[in-house]
Design a protein around this nucleic acid. Structure first.
Length: 432
RNA sequence: GCGGUAUUGGUGAAGUUUGGUUAACACACCGGAUUGUGGUUCCGGCAUGCGUGGGUUCGAGUCCCACAUACCGCCCCA
């Protein structure tokens, strides 16, 4: 094996691509019903697009960015997530303009890149499906986005998921809470993990996210952000919860849930699963939230946004683990068995004619004997085989066999090319 | 970025403890079993090579070193 794919990448082969399309098609159909339209943005952007939006202290920017200088000495980064690029496009194309309906609702799906140690379901090149909605502060929009995520999982056949909810409030809420949190943690500084010591002043909220056992005791008794929400922020969160209740969507509030990316505020949510395929306990399969202020951060007007993203690789692992049946596209209508050199041309003609009518059809290309060809037809799961040999050429007929029942009938070469549909509908005795 | 485990045909793999000369077995695949008909059965074929590169040795798939990749854990997250 001379060449191998770059570390952390994967070839998605026939057999898997059908599953990918099933997921993508399901998402597209669902998003359509919510009136979200597809947007495609570049796979790479100026480094600053991500560093500005994700936060300088975020792990994505500090160690996971796949960045490089191009030949024009531009600092480029492969996108580590979808939101920043969409926001940049939103601003650059002035999609906030009066001629566009608000909220402006889009979805995307495609590859993302993070430079990190690969593990199952976590590659350097991975794929996300995400949605973003710009231009409304209404809690209804938060709820719509959440319900869309939940419905997507439902459509895919997944239940047993947990929706976790929290609010980070607005800037004032966050500043107040930040101060309170530092005040609470400061006395315990020496007892915190190394990691958390660093975070305490840079981004204290993320101490709450620590998995270190020594931090857990402090996290448990830490002040709750929900107690520091301003009246506005509180009202927003209350309405989100009320409307989720109204829709019958279950959730749990986890006041210690935070985000790796700095741009979130107000409602944040995660869809979690207990499936062992992604690790023990509850793990996150989909994450989203509100990011008011992000559009301004990238030079746009004061327009709010809300969205979510989910990883396709992880989702597929989950679907496989939960044994959700997925369609496979490899069915074959007719395999045309040609016998002898004389039948070669007619075989080609018939295959083409049947294809032209919209049926899938295939034939032998390796000069296999009839027995071999039938074997192939069987392996390809052909519904019918059509046999053409010298005697058939002479009588201008062919033998059409229904593989499931073994029933074989004689048809003319003319009709099989002209109207395959009505042959299979009417000429077999035990139709189904 | 750190730690652990692994890497043998198209696939699953045995063999690595005790270095020794034909790399087991199975599946898949290909060919054949009265000259033109499938899922069973039988027979035959199928790795000059054991991730890559060095080294130790009379001799290495088996020992040592480096590198690559995969998986698991940390970190973090999708």
């Amino acid at each position: 094996m001379r060449y191998q794919k770059p570390k952390g990448t994967a070839d998605i082969l026939p057999g898997d691509t059908e599953k990918w399309r099933f997921v993508e098609d399901t998402a597209r159909k669902l998003f359509k019903t919510y009136q979200y339209r597809e947007i495609r943005t570049p796979m790479f952007e100026n480094f600053e697009v991500f560093s500005r939006t994700s936060g300088d202290t975020s792990d994505i920017v500090t160690k996971e960015m796949y960045d490089f200088k191009d030949k024009g000495d531009r600092h480029i980064s492969l996108r580590p997530e979808g939101t920043a690029g969409v926001v940049r496009a939103f601003v650059e194309n002035k999609l906030y303009g009066p001629e566009y309906n608000k909220p402006y609702k889009v979805y995307y799906m495609g590859p993302m890149y993070r430079y990190e140690r690969p593990q199952s379901g976590r590659l350097r090149e991975f794929h996300q499906i995400g949605v973003e909605a710009f231009g409304s502060d209404s809690p209804v929009l938060d709820v719509e986005v959440i319900s869309m995520a939940i419905n997507l999982f439902k459509k895919l056949g997944l239940s047993d998921l947990r929706l976790t909810l929290n609010s980070l409030g607005d800037k004032t809420s966050r500043d107040n809470y930040r101060a309170a949190l530092i005040e609470y943690l400061e006395p315990h500084f020496e007892e915190l993990s190394e990691e958390s010591k660093v975070r305490l002043h840079k981004n204290p909220l993320r101490v709450l996210d620590s998995k270190e056992e020594q931090d857990q005791q402090f996290v448990a008794d830490a002040p709750s952000i929900l107690d520091y929400l301003t009246d506005d922020a509180k009202a927003h969160f209350e309405q989100v919860k009320q409307q989720l209740d109204l829709l019958g969507i279950d959730y749990v509030v986890d006041s210690t849930m935070v985000r790796g990316l700095d741009y979130y505020n107000h409602t944040i949510f995660e869809v979690m699963t207990q499936s062992k395929s992604l690790g023990h306990g509850y793990t996150t399969i989909c994450a989203g939230g509100r990011y008011n202020g992000l559009v301004e951060e990238l030079g746009g007007p004061e327009v709010s946004g809300v969205g979510f993203g989910l990883g396709i690789e992880r989702l597929l692992l989950l679907l496989q683990d939960e044994q959700v049946s997925m369609p496979n596209d490899d069915d074959l209508d007719v395999f045309v068995v040609g016998i002898g050199e004389a039948a070669n041309a007619m075989t080609l003609k018939v295959v083409q004619a049947i294809r032209a009518k919209g049926f899938s059809s295939d034939r032998d290309y390796l000069d296999r004997k009839p027995k071999g060809q039938f074997k192939i037809a069987d392996r390809l799961n052909a519904k019918y085989t059509l046999t053409i040999g010298e005697s058939e050429l002479e009588s201008k007929t062919a033998h059409l066999k229904k593989m499931a029942s073994g029933e074989e009938i004689t048809v003319t070469l003319e009709e099989v090319q002209q109207d395959f549909q009505s042959i299979i509908e009417s000429k077999f005795s035990n139709k189904k």
